[in-house]
Design a protein around this nucleic acid. Structure first.
Lengths: 240, 240
DNA sequence: TAGTGGTCTAGACCACCAT
DNA sequence: TGGTGGTCTAGACCACTAG
């Protein structure tokens, strides 16, 4: 079984929506009937519907039915998604590029060491990088990796050939980034960021700072990013 | 059946975690065994585990088991949650206050009318309000309501006695806010915001702008907010 | 009352992981 | 290989909404 059945079912329903067989605001065929029609059990159909609901494509109303949302496309891909920045820029229809500025060995300062759950003064690496959209630098990234994660310093050179730190972790280490727990803020750029991104010192920036965890809850890097507020926007759905 | 069984099961597991029967990083009893032990079907147990996973309390690893996460408490309550701003400030340990500046009748301009799905020029109401933290104004809110939602203009006076527009909708109308679809940005304050929040014109602000929808996907208000970047921070979890 | 989504069961087989 | 979580089925009953 390549793909789980319920995913194929979800895709079939998406297809029907995009082909206009089910239109926004309209009710879907009821669960028992649709399950029969698609040749799956109701349980499997419900798994598919649940995933569509989580994606914001449909809404279910107890006793009434399941309805196609307005703008089933628009939403998604927002600030709560940990995506490759480069692919996010591409999806927005721009030419994207990643550039690593430098990789240096450092001694991790206490504040960051605590977040990374290592001893202060432990060896680590700092990676500075930029992301470009249509040849304009729009994001500055500063990342600190505990040295313990990297067996061999040469391994880090692979970062130059990756499109992001996440790609590097996925493809060259045994750690797989799962979530970035952060705080969001608005700040003016420090001198270095001002110069690298070539923005005015009065240009407000979106500032995200936090720690990345892998799927075993191991902290794998501390990082912060400055996003040009005039060039980069986050989509966001706040819900109850 | 008061509570669904799977919710009770989820609570029982949470209880075991908080009582230290299952400790962070440890593996839970396997699904077949735990289901038998709790006297429910494996399907029901899995529903409970899924909800715990969505809450970030456990992680499941195919072929290995389900594990209690570190810090099963901390996270959550971030930018993706549509919460009463006042209660959010209180939770952070500050004295919070809401103040409505004014409520005016207006003719809705085309750009906003489109977002609210009404005809340009339709009558509507503008509400300007501030949120205070320890007597310091930290958030400026500008909201536009389609006139059609409000039978009687006097009804709006109730807004003065609410702690937020969301409370007003919940308690005085038949509309119940469900989600705020928005964009996030960093901006410098316009003159009016600069004066009302008493901030420097160079103080970066977090700017959220979007449309609120009720549970039937009816747009119930357009709004934007300016948050003082130096006084207000958002928590945020970006995950895959 | 009829139809809808919500919950629950019992049992089966598959895919992943460590040994 | 044996144990774990992942997927799937068929059938039952409950709770909500509307006419």
């Amino acid at each position: 079984m390549r793909k789980p059945l319920y995913m194929e079912v979800a895709e079939e329903i998406k297809r029907r929506i995009s082909e206009g067989i089910y239109k926004p605001q309209e009710k879907l065929t009821s669960e028992p009937v649709l399950a029969e029609e698609l040749g799956v059990s109701r349980g499997t159909l419900r798994e598919a519907l649940t995933s569509l609901e989580n994606e914001g494509i449909i809404s279910r109303k107890h006793g009434k039915g399941s309805f196609v949302n307005k703008n089933p496309d628009k939403v998604l891909a927002g600030i709560e998604r940990l995506d490759n920045l480069v692919s996010t820029i591409r999806q927005a229809g721009h030419v994207a590029q990643d550039k690593v500025l430098n990789i240096d060995e450092i001694s991790i300062e206490p504040k960051i060491a605590e977040m990374l759950e290592v001893e202060p003064g432990t060896k680590g690496y700092v990676i500075e990088s930029l992301r470009f959209s249509d040849d304009v630098p729009v994001i500055y990234c500063y990342d600190v990796l505990p040295g313990g994660l990297i067996d061999n310093k040469d391994l880090l050179k692979a970062r130059y050939r990756c499109e992001s730190l996440t790609d590097f972790f996925d493809n060259h280490t045994k750690y797989h980034p799962q979530k970035f727990v952060a705080t969001a803020n608005a700040l003016l750029p420090p001198k270095r960021v001002e110069e690298l991104l070539n923005v005015a010192s009065t240009q407000p920036m979106i500032y995200l700072e936090g720690v990345m965890y892998d799927d075993n809850d191991t902290p794998i890097n501390y990082g912060y990013q400055y996003y040009r507020g005039d060039k980069y926007q986050f989509k966001l759905v706040r819900s109850r």
